[in-house]
Amino acid sequence: MQLTMDDTDDSLTALHPNHVKVTRISAILFVLPFVIGSIILEVAELLPFGIFVVPTVLLAAFIVIRVPLRRYQARGYDLGNDRLRVVRGILFRHDSVVPFGRVQHIDVDQGPLQRAYGIATLTVHTAGTHNSSVHLPGLGNDDALAMRETIRAHIKRETT
């Protein structure tokens, strides 16, 4: 009954495009204090103009524009017949596979930002010390709920 799963990245499903927007907004919230700080330092006129603000703004733009897109492109998942594969990471590639038969429980979480954009995070918990919870953010909310039902149905069938 089990299908073999190929280990290439071609078989991966991409996340919901809104995931990029949400991560960008989070990134903006993260860099904002630093940008404000650099502007204040500029206003204080301690050093010639641009010493603080230029590098900070460039770095902030990189974090807000480039990084979320690259991370989105690096992420992917594959819902097999009996297992879930989650791939993530730009520099460090993490490629996890959780068999449905080892899932202890499943969470679907939505933060306020995620709710506004209609996406959700699916988390599967296992009994293992390593990978005790595998997070899969950036799914369409309906997809996440459907995936939860699929995995749950599988667990039920195996158990009874």
Partner: peptide, 26 residues
Amino acid sequence: LQSLEIVQGPIARKRGYATLYFGLAG
């Protein structure tokens, strides 16, 4: 075993090796 994860750092990816983590309960 509970899960399996293959992790590759930047050097590992270029050089074709990886670390395999076993999800072991306890």
